[in-house]
Design a protein around this nucleic acid. Structure first.
Lengths: 115, 115
DNA sequence: CAGTATCCACAATGATACTG
DNA sequence: CAGTATCATTGTGGATACTG
C-alpha cells in the first residue's frame, strides 16, 4: 500500500478515497478510462495539458493502488493500454456523483474568479 | 473561488470535489461536523493530532469554499462553533460512500504495510 | 479558548530535453 | 509511441512559541 494511502487510513477510512484519487488529473483519468481503455498518448490528449512525466506518475500510482491496469503489447510501434480494474470500476458511482456535484458547484459559483 | 478549485474546474468538474475536500483532515472534519456542530478545540481532539495552525487553515478553506460556517459567540471564555452549511450537507452521501469504500479498501489490503 | 506568527521540510507538479 | 532524466518551483503540512 502506498504510504499516503496508509497515512490516510490511520486518520480515518473516509480519507482513503482522496488519497488514491487526490493526485492531479487522477479523477479525470479514471473518468476517461471509465468510458473505455486508452493508450498513453491518447489519454494525455484526453485529459488536457499534462506532461508525460506527470501522466506516467499518476498512472503508476493508480496502478499501485489497484485501480488501473497496464497492458503492454509487443508491437512496433509500441502500444500500451490502460484500463480500469474491477476495483477501479467500483469507483464509477463516486466519479459520476463528483462530476455532477462539481458541475453544480461550478454553476453556482460562476463568475467568481480568483484575482 | 479558491485558486485550487478554479484550477480543478478548468481541468474537469469532476476534480472540484477533491479540490475542496482534498486537504489534510478535511474529509474527517466534514464527517465529524456531519454529526453535529463542533467547537474549535473539540474538533481538534475529534480528528486527531492536528496542530491549531493546520486546523485553522483547513477550516478557513472549507469556509471559503462554502461548506462550513463559523459562528463566534461573544462570551468569556471565547466560543466558536463550526457547522456544515447547506452546501456542506449536500456532501453527506459522498462522505458516507467514501467512508464505506475506504473501509472496504482497507480490509482488502489489510496487512500490506509500506516498508 | 481559539487562535496567530515564524520558520522549516518535503512531496508533488511542471518545464525541458532526451531515449528504447 | 511511450516513456525517462534532470532541474526548478511552489504549495502544503508540521513544530514551536506566543496572544487577545
Amino acid at each position: 500500500m502506498r504510504r499516503s494511502v496508509e497515512t490516510a487510513l490511520q486518520v480515518c477510512p473516509v480519507e482513503v478515497g482522496v488519497a488514491v484519487l487526490g493526485g492531479a488529473w487522477k479523477l479525470t483519468i479514471v473518468k476517461h478510462l471509465g468510458k473505455r481503455p486508452h493508450r498513453f498518448g491518447e489519454l494525455g490528449r484526453a485529459v488536457g495539458t499534462v506532461t508525460p512525466r506527470v501522466l506516467t506518475r499518476q498512472l503508476r500510482e493508480l496502478e499501485a493502488d489497484g485501480l488501473v491496469s497496464r497492458t503492454v503489447f509487443a508491437e512496433v510501434p509500441p502500444r500500451v493500454e490502460y484500463a480500469l480494474t474491477d476495483l477501479g470500476e467500483t469507483l464509477r458511482p463516486a466519479v459520476a456523483w463528483l462530476d455532477d456535484w462539481g458541475a453544480t458547484y461550478a454553476e453556482a459559483h460562476a463568475g467568481e474568479t480568483h484575482e
